[in-house]
């Protein structure tokens, strides 16, 4: 039996510590392709989150009756069903958005964030935890896509969510809405997020050392044992 983490931790790990884009670097194809504008990033993120949450809930509830030999096939059929529902609903209710996202909505079927969570988490945990995990991963995914889309839209076309915020004198950087802009922006965001994680880890490390120097060896061991 592996150690159970707290429920809030189950949600938060997807947002920050194990963020699917910033840390696991999963599902990069739609990430790089659709984040030309903030609204595209947000819509793609929400669509993927919906599919992720629904499939995780369902798969985790029926995990005990799915024979391991056919689990991947079952996961894919379930994911594909939810993706098709999202696709049809978007085509019916938000035709413009559906046009802008093009083939990337149907391609959520093969998004490795989703299949990855089913295999690594939902098929081994109860529906409650699977729901929180999926919601966390989905939030992390949406957040990363929204940030990426906003930066590219602001610098590449002077607008955010279609509203102009940069002055006319600002010449839009064309490269930002072309494919290289996606790689540049993602690279810089990854660098920034790693910089902070490393800094945070080092600070924690140093605080333990300084604590040790202050209280001495015996007390520290005592403290750890109490914990």
């Amino acid at each position: 039996m592996k150690k159970q983490v707290s429920l809030s931790q189950e949600y938060l790990k997807g947002v920050w510590k194990n963020n699917p884009i910033l840390v696991q670097l999963l599902g990069l194809c739609p990430t790089l392709a659709v984040t030309v504008t903030a609204i595209n990033g947000l819509a793609m993120g929400l669509a993927a989150t919906f599919v992720l949450v629904m499939s995780s809930l369902l798969i985790s509830s029926i995990r005990k009756i799915i024979p391991p030999q056919v689990r991947i096939a079952s996961f894919i059929v379930i994911i594909a069903t939810f993706v098709t529902i999202v696709d049809l609903v978007m085509k019916a209710k938000f035709p413009d958005l559906s046009k802008a996202l093009g083939p990337f909505i149907p391609l959520i079927v093969v998004n490795c964030v989703i299949l990855g969570r089913q295999e690594a988490f939902a098929s081994k945990n109860n529906p409650g935890r699977a729901f929180l995990d999926a919601l966390g991963m989905g939030s992390g995914f949406t957040m990363a896509l929204l940030i990426l889309g906003s930066i590219r839209e602001i610098i590449g076309s002077r607008t955010i969510f279609g509203l102009q915020i940069m002055p006319d004198q600002f010449e839009p950087w064309l490269i930002m809405i072309l494919p290289p802009g996606a790689f540049l922006t993602l690279g810089l965001i990854l660098g920034l997020s790693n910089f902070y994680s490393i800094k945070k880890a080092r600070e924690e490390h140093e605080s333990i050392i300084s604590h040790y120097k202050r209280v001495g060896r015996e007390e520290l061991i005592e403290e750890l044992e109490v914990k």
């Binding site: 009756i65 799915i66 024979p67 030999q69 056919v70 096939a73 079952s74 059929v77 379930i78 594909a80 069903t81 098709t84 529902i85």
Partner: peptide, 18 residues
């Protein structure tokens, strides 16, 4: 039998839903 049943069941439910 279980494999067949589960996959068929998932297929039928998905098909109906879609």
């Amino acid at each position: 039998v279980q494999m067949l049943l589960v996959l068929t069941g998932i297929g039928i439910i998905s098909g109906g839903l879609l």
